[in-house]
Design a protein around this nucleic acid. Structure first.
Lengths: 179, 179
DNA sequence: GCCTCCATGTAATTGGTTACATGATTCT
DNA sequence: AGAATCATGTAACCAATTACATGGAGGC
């Protein structure tokens, strides 16, 4: 009996809300979940087959263009709940942009400044997007949507913190230059 | 001619600073780099062989207990610089803890609260560690070490933002309960 | 003599991305 | 008729983790 990975749990979580097809699930990963977890259809379809074989989801209907809908079974919902209540795995940040910072001493000062400006700009752009999205969701305060809004808030605070950090790092350098 | 991945660039960056053995590189990933990128020795040793074959690093000496030291070649240093100056890849956060947030509606309120408290506690713990580490590095303001301190500041701001977010999310819920 | 740390490697497996491949429906 | 979108799948490859495997040096 193969254990369920993070992708499997994400799929079960989505299917615990409502029945969906592989295609709809794929869109969910492109849309709402994109900012915390990603997955392509090429990973999703085989995973659905495995979850079905494990009895955690079941086929419910076939749509017009050959689409297949799935719903979480009782065992499936129980498995997501178990996962949610489980203690968090020791998650570490994995950021290529921050990794590069360790090696910036290899670049001339003006290129370092360019780097940090680009970094800040990217975070500010995302911040604008996230805030616009938050405005649109604001009114919904019931059910699953609400938790999307709460997760989004984490994204907003993250981008804010990273943009501010990049500005701080740039100022650190500048002060240094003028000395 | 195989292209160099992120791990390869990280190794080149470290070796551009000073010559090191595979074992020392492994420790560097456990220690300073651990918070932004991770790698095991089983991934590092084969990668060193590839970098050497590509002429980006070269063997410099053999230590007593069979250790092999490597240094970045000119081509190797040029490659890190190229990588650093290159525009950033579209990096997205990948967080299982935040993914779980989308599905918290499946848990009873008290378990949600437990989840968010655990989340906050973890971030606060890391914050304490990072701040202690920052204190220790503070005095060094030259060379590679300085950039380690700047990257650490990003970690501090990240943990701070996430801890505050978890508290905010919990309060959101509480306010709701009392209504 | 035994344990710990230093030191390097390979093998097996999982997770994830990119590319390949195909076909139906709807819109213009 | 042609393009965009819906819809599902497989194959090849790359990245990363876990487990397997071995041996030397130094401290107790």
């Amino acid at each position: 009996m193969r254990s369920v990975g993070t992708l499997g749990h994400a799929l079960l979580g989505l299917l615990a809300g409502r029945e969906m097809s592989g295609y709809e699930l794929t869109r969910a990963f492109d849309k709402s979940l994109a900012n915390v977890w990603s997955a392509r259809h090429s990973q999703i379809y085989p995973e659905l087959a495995k979850l079905e074989a494990a009895g955690l989801i079941r086929r419910t209907a076939s749509g017009s263009r050959g689409s297949k809908s799935y719903a979480a079974t009782e065992a499936g919902v129980a498995e997501v709940r178990r996962w949610l209540a489980e203690s968090l795995p020791p998650e570490v940040l994995r950021s290529e942009s921050l990794l590069r910072v360790f090696f910036l001493w290899l670049l001339p000062t003006d290129e370092v400044e360019t780097y940090l400006r680009a970094q800040e700009a990217r975070h500010r752009e995302r911040l604008v997007d996230y805030r616009a999205l938050a405005e649109r969701i604001r009114s919904t305060d019931d059910g699953p949507l609400r938790w999307g809004r709460i997760a989004l808030e984490a994204g907003i605070r993250y981008e804010e913190a990273m943009a501010e950090w990049a500005r701080w790092a740039r100022e650190e350098l500048d002060g240094d230059e003028r000395r």
